[in-house]
Amino acid sequence: MKNLTMKTTAFLVALVMMAATFTGCKSGPKDDAIKAAVETALLANPHIAGAAVVVEKGVATLSGQVPDDATKADIDKTVAAIPGVKSVVNNIAVVADTPSVAVAATDMLTNAVKDATKDFPTVTATVNDGVITLKGEIQKTNLQKLMMALNALKPKKIDNSQLVIK
């Protein structure tokens, strides 16, 4: 019941915020930039699974799964503190039975992989269900650097068996 009230309140706050933004002037970071910042914050949290965020007029709506209420509250606080976030609608579900290995959500992982492989234009990387698949070619001297960067992104697995190493 309490939860429902909180959700309703959050929804009303969101509505008021949206109304205010429609009439007000545009200022602060754009929704896309806020979304990227929120995704980064979510990615940094090892306890959240299947995380996703939608940002509209500064209102961040979160979804995903966490193992306990404390983590959910913690995420709420972290996201609310991100510049440009006017309010947070926290739809994250608390599911006790989360797998022990936290794997980054696909779209977040895709963005992080894009950043990590940017300096290796001959390498193409795809992300599917937490698995990073590498194709193309790379110099042997750059391989360790690339693998270090990708291993830090909390993938489920990295498959480079189709990558040609020169």
Binding site: L143, I158, I165
Partner: peptide
Amino acid sequence: KQQLWDTYERLDPNYSSGDLVMNIN
């Protein structure tokens, strides 16, 4: 971190087995 990565590279020269995710911060 470098020492561990060099050890990993010795055990699996091209990291191609796809059976290890090592995140040393």
